[in-house]
Write a protein that binds this DNA or RNA. Sequence first.
DNA 1: TGTCAACTGTCAGTCGCTGTCATTAGCCTC
DNA 2: GAGGCTAATGACAGCGACTGACAGTTGACA
Lengths: 214, 214
Amino acid sequence: MKTQEAGSGLRERKKQRTRDALLRSALELFTTKGYDRTTVDEIAEAVDVSQRTFFRYFTSKEETAFAVQDMVESRFIAILRERPAAESPFEALRAAVLDAWDTLGESIEEVVPVELHMRTYQMIESTPSLIAVHLRRSTEVEEEIARVIAEREGLDVETDPRPRVTVAAFSGVMRLAGRLWGAGEDISVESIRAVTESYLDQLGPVLAGKWRAK
Amino acid sequence: MKTQEAGSGLRERKKQRTRDALLRSALELFTTKGYDRTTVDEIAEAVDVSQRTFFRYFTSKEETAFAVQDMVESRFIAILRERPAAESPFEALRAAVLDAWDTLGESIEEVVPVELHMRTYQMIESTPSLIAVHLRRSTEVEEEIARVIAEREGLDVETDPRPRVTVAAFSGVMRLAGRLWGAGEDISVESIRAVTESYLDQLGPVLAGKWRAK
DNA sequence: TGTCAACTGTCAGTCGCTGTCATTAGCCTC
DNA sequence: GAGGCTAATGACAGCGACTGACAGTTGACA
C-alpha cells in the first residue's frame, strides 16, 4: 500500500531500500525452501539487519507473504470503480478481474518481478497456514467489494444483502480458480486468467440448474 | 471425529474423560476470556495434566476450537448423502444444511452442550486467527461436498468443474451467513438457521440479475 | 504377580513475536 | 560544521505455542 513514494531524504530512501530488500529476500526464501522452513532470523540475516528490525517493518512473518497481494487487491478495487454503471454487478466484477490480470505488471513490477509474485502466489496456495490467512484476507476484500457494488447500485450494504450475496458467490468461484491454478503446473499469468474466466462463465448456468448444457 | 466410542477398558475410558475434560475446559475458557488470552497452560492446569499431555490429545490449541465443528460437518455430509437423487444439487445442499441445523443436538449433546458450541462458533467468527483457520477448514469440507455432488450427478470432479463451482457459490453464501450471524446478538440455533435459509434463497435471483424483485 | 506397553511428566530447546533500553546516525539549527 | 534532536537500530530478556528426548507411572494381560 505504502510501498511506493520516492522519498526525499536519505533516511527515507534507506528505509525504502531496507523494506524492499527484506520483502524480496523473504519471498525468495519462501519460494525456494518453503515458508515454514524459513525463519525470520534467516530473512533478517540475508539483509543484514537484526530480527527486531524485521518486525519493525513487518508486523509478522505472514505480512511479507501478502505485501504484494495487497497492492494487487487495491488495484482491482480501483479498476472495479471505473467500470461503467451500465454493466450488471456481476459483469463489472468479471471485467475488473480480467483487466487486473491483464495489467498486473504495471502495478507490481517496480517492487517485485511478476514471476516472483506468481511463485509466491502458488506457494501461498500450497501452504496450509498461509491458505488460512489468504482466505481471511479475501473476506476482508470481499467486504470492500460489496460496498463498491452497493454504491454502484445505490443500495445500502447493511440493509440489503444482495451485494454481499453476489460478491460471496463471485469470490467463492475466484478462490476456487486460485486454488486449482495453484495445484497445477502452469505458473503463468495467462493460465490463471484463463481459469478464472472460464469458471466465472459457468456460475450462472450452473446455478440455474443447466447441468446438461454443453 | 473419533470422539465417541464408549471404550471398553479402564484405560480407554480414562483417556476419553481426559480428552473431553480438556475440550470442555478449553471451550469454556475460550468463550469466557477469549481465545488469545487463554494459554495452553491454563487449559492443562484446569484439567490437572501437564501441558505436554494436552499436546498429546490435540495437535494444536486451534484444534480444540474446531473439534466440535468437525463432528457437525461430518454429520452434514452424511445427511447430504441421504438426499433424494431427484433434487438438484443446489436443492439437496440447501435441504441438508437446514436439516443439519434442525438436528444439531443429536450429533453434539453427548460431548458438549449445544449452547457452549454456539458460543464457541460465535467466538470463532469474532477471532481473526480462528476465522482464518475456519475458512481453510471450510474449503476442505467444500472439496468433500463437491465429491458427493459429483457422485450424485454421475460426474467426475477432476474433469467437470460444475460440482465445485456450485459448491463454491453455495459455500460462499454459507460463510456469509455465518459471519453475519456471528456479528449479531442472537446466539440461538434458530437464528442462524433463519439467516442461512433466507440468504440461500436469494442466490439464484441475485445472480440472474433480478435485483429489482421484491 | 510380574512383565510389557501405553500414558504421562519433566526438561530443554526452537521459533514467532514483544517490551525495554542503550546506541547509532540522519537531520536541522545556529 | 559542531552540537542537539529524534528516528532507526541493535542487543537482550521474556512469553507462549509447540517438539523431542528421557524417565517414571500405571493399566493390560499372561
